[in-house]
Amino acid sequence: MFRDAALVAAKDLRLEARSRVAFNQIAPLALVILLLFAFALDPARGVLARAAPGLFWVAVLLCALFAVQRAFAIESGDGRSDALRLSGLDPAGIFLGKVAAIALELAALEVLLGLGVAVLYDASFGGWVLLVATGASATAAIAAAGTLYGVLAAGLRVRETLLPLLLLPVLAPVLIGSTRAFEAAFSGVPADGWPWLGLLTLFALVYLVAGALAFGSLLEDM
């Protein structure tokens, strides 16, 4: 299973390295979102610095939608979904591979967004251990839930509009948890953030297990 996951993740990342869709389109989009927040919330009053953790994670969620769409767009057309089914790879492995590829793309994006938040919103960072742990857990949670809901919407004509409706309400706990944990880290009281890290990790585990179980059955008619 893990060998299959590594194969699929390597394939998706190789595709990304060659096509540069996430790098050329999703990453600039993330910066556009940061600018839009700045225009919407008057920067002169320090709102941006205070709201930085929440805005950061909203930007990550919006970009995650595109990353998930992209992860399934590369499997559609030209009988590629049939090829994936016929490859003999373990469905759970395919799921975990897709999750890993999306998570790595999101992690790169988060580093970029973090720099953007630091420069544009004048936010001060602290509590690095909590920040990195929260980032890792939340990214795994978003990627796992995103991949599961992505395959639920894959192959439908209305997938672009259906996926946000299905996925964003589900990710609400991740947004709440990661925002609160980041706020705790930013404000220098990391102790407040650790319960949230637990919730995020639980969320990620639930969706990793659910996705690994469901993916085989859902892959049949992707």
Partner: peptide, 18 residues
């Protein structure tokens, strides 16, 4: 059906986080 199975799990997670 898969979406329906996930419904109560999501409700519990949302409830806990809120």
């Amino acid at each position: 059906a898969w979406l329906g199975v996930l419904l109560p799990i999501n409700v519990v997670l949302v409830r806990q986080s809120v």
